[in-house]
Design a protein around this nucleic acid. Structure first.
Length: 104
DNA sequence: ACACTGACCTCCT
DNA sequence: AAGGAGGCCAGTG
């Protein structure tokens, strides 16, 4: 396994997230083989924010909470986008998070 | 060029 | 059970 962490890898994984599905930073990091680089995943998302092909709103923390919502254009934009995909957000938390969790 | 911070997660005390 | 610290990479001041 190539335990190589690359922003491009993160972008590709996030881009692979289907409609109405969500994933977590740690999950992405784990898929890359580096679960300890979850921090970098979040930072990569920051850079990914410049790309329109990377649905950062589909990436949440392990608790299914919209942690980076404040980093979007609007604090509610992330929630709106997720709700637009059929997800139910309550108190900045995704209901049935595991159900919508995108797992390989 | 050096130091700090950042959309997190996991382990140890 | 709860709290604190560590670990990784890269960008910015």
């Amino acid at each position: 396994m190539e335990n190589e962490f690359s922003y491009e890898k993160v972008y590709e994984i996030v881009r692979k997230i289907p409609f109405g599905k969500v994933t977590t930073y740690g999950l992405i990091a784990e898929q890359l083989g580096t679960r300890r680089t979850a921090r970098m995943v979040g930072y990569a998302m920051n850079a990914a924010h410049n790309l329109s092909d990377v649905p950062a709103h589909r990436v949440v923390n392990r608790n299914g909470i919209l942690t980076g919502k404040h980093h979007f254009a609007s604090p509610t934009l992330m929630q709106e986008l997720l709700e637009n995909e059929g997800l139910v957000i309550k108190n900045d938390k995704i209901l049935n998070f595991e159900k919508h969790l995108w797992k390989t």
